[in-house]
Design a protein around this nucleic acid. Structure first.
Lengths: 328, 328
DNA sequence: CTGTTAGCGCCTTCAC
DNA sequence: GTGAAGGCGCTAACAG
């Protein structure tokens, strides 16, 4: 691959001048510009972005997105939204799948690759040692979803949506409402569950059942399917079920049908995240969500040092066919 | 961020020795190793992978995956599979969405970032100028799906699966079979369609209808939904429909239900790709697919110069609830 | 076993 | 309007 030095030599100018032409900054005579561009065209030269980053700020143009479950399409949609938000900065997003087992190693690799920022949607804890390296390398770090740093307090307030959903279930006559969650370790930090508990109390329900299990070690839809199969094969212990995410809801719904239950007549199902495919199921998946585009934008902006604190995004309850309609 | 030079100074050795310790190559006395590691621990130093790549081969550790439609979950699954295949090489995969409008610019950006390879699943043409830059930069390039280079002849043979599917439809009494495709420009290179035509002929059907439209400019499921709504709202012109991919099939299925058709009694639906969520729909989505893991592996290996030509992957027909059962 | 030197491609500072 | 020099962090070739 040809470099800036060869271009300079062939055009009979200095490397600095080539830089000036390429960056369109500083003043160069039109004639020189012309000459340099000609050589560039002839040679098929392309600018080396990584060398440039090395020389400038010692960081790459990558923002790392850490997710707990690569098979949850929601994260793919988040990835897509972040890519779009990153376009104006010509940043790349790259996804990493993390678990309690490998989180630290993955982050160390990311540090080695000098990502500009790390967005952790995984709710998995990292060692101090690891976080120290992140800091020393000058890499920004956000915990997606939860509010743990003053400088990046971006945050989705699920309360409103969850309360609306629980009220809707109550108004449509649901008596027993459960929540299908996942691994116990994540319970502590999860805002969805906190909002759910509060909403249940508000509506006068008693302490709700929350089902734990091995998600994300097994994929969400499989987990949902199996749990629902277990719960509903002989009985109908709940007439409404919240699921940690839409993927799980989809698994639950299929299991309910396989058990001969009708949705929503026998059981109402509500997920989180509003994945795009949710509308195409029959019945379509009701869901709770924030604004994924806003969220993605906030993360990218934070990583680029372009973020103004104080953003709280409202959530909404999207009421589709998987819950009973209000009688009117 | 602290560098290798500071480490060397603090440990009282040369930078080369630090390199040797870090790379575990060459011979260093245990005592020196110890000393160096101590300093590294204290300082929170991390190795800079991009500088290393710059100095070695002038390429980064990224393989670029070009897809026509970020909202098609199949590509996310491909991405995931490629990531897993890339792990042993400590390579990263990064996805780019391309269309006829932006393909060349996107590729130029990738060249600037000195990706190790480019896997183009988009079936969009690039200019000679652009391909020249790719070559000059020493970047590997594969056209996913089609067989166009001798050195990377990886290829999925859909014929067997498509023929099996068409035979199955015939055996279950389907008379009129259509194919929902997408943009006309892609027709030429598409093997699925060629296989379909051949299979239809083999089974004695007359020249089949192939529906064109604006996919991937609109998302596959929306496209499928709208086309099927148009076709089936007043009549049942087909009793079986192939769709270019599962996302499209899902849209078609929902539209059919909304038109009051029963699947598969009135219409059988078959997609391509075997996306994971296909099983959870009711009815579950029948599909045609190759082996995504094999495919992903082949692409990564090719990009790493680790590929042995001559691989053809068999495809299979996965017969689920969206097609009629054979009477037995 | 260890150190010196040069170079990867680019950018920035300073000088003319 | 232009050029020379030094540095980003790392690796490789060549000594000793």
């Amino acid at each position: 691959m040809i470099g800036r030095r060869e271009i300079a030599k062939m055009a009979g100018v200095s490397t600095t001048t080539v830089t000036r032409v390429l960056s369109k900054s500083g003043s160069v005579s039109p004639k020189t510009v012309e000459k340099v561009y000609n050589v560039i065209r002839e040679t098929g030269y392309t600018w080396n972005a990584i060398a440039s980053n090395l020389s400038k700020n010692n960081l790459s143009n990558i923002i790392a997105l850490l997710v707990p479950d690569m098979t949850n399409y929601y994260y793919m949609e988040m990835f897509d939204s972040m890519m779009k938000a990153a376009r104006p900065y010509s940043m790349l997003i790259s996804i990493y799948s993390i678990s309690n087992m490998n989180a630290n190693e993955v982050v160390e690799e990311i540090v080695s690759n000098r990502a500009r920022g790390i967005v952790n949607m995984g709710l998995v804890p990292l060692t101090h040692e690891c976080m120290r390296r992140v800091d020393l390398a000058g890499i920004k770090f956000v915990h997606g979803g939860i509010r743990d740093r003053e400088d990046c307090d971006f945050h989705i307030d699920y309360q409103e949506a969850v309360s609306a959903a629980v009220r809707h279930l109550k108004d449509t006559g649901c008596k027993k409402i459960g929540f299908l969650f996942g691994m116990k370790q994540k319970l502590l930090h999860d805002e969805k569950i906190q909002c759910f508990r509060r909403a249940m109390e508000e509506c006068g329900y008693k302490e709700p059942d929350i089902f734990l299990g091995s998600y994300p070690n097994v994929s969400a839809s499989v987990f949902g399917y199996e749990q629902a199969k277990k719960l509903f094969s002989d009985a109908t212990p709940y007439d409404a079920l919240f699921c940690l995410n839409d993927m799980m809801a989809v698994g639950v719904m299929r299991a309910l049908m396989d058990c001969g239950k009708r949705i929503p007549e026998d059981v109402s199902v509500i997920g989180f995240d509003n994945i795009k495919l949710g509308e195409f199921f029959k019945p379509s998946v009701s869901t709770l969500c924030g604004d994924i585009i806003e969220e993605a934008k906030a993360y990218v902006q934070y990583c680029m040092g372009d973020y103004t604190p104080g953003v709280t995004v409202k959530s909404r309850f999207i009421c589709r066919e998987s819950v009973r309609k209000l009688e009117t």
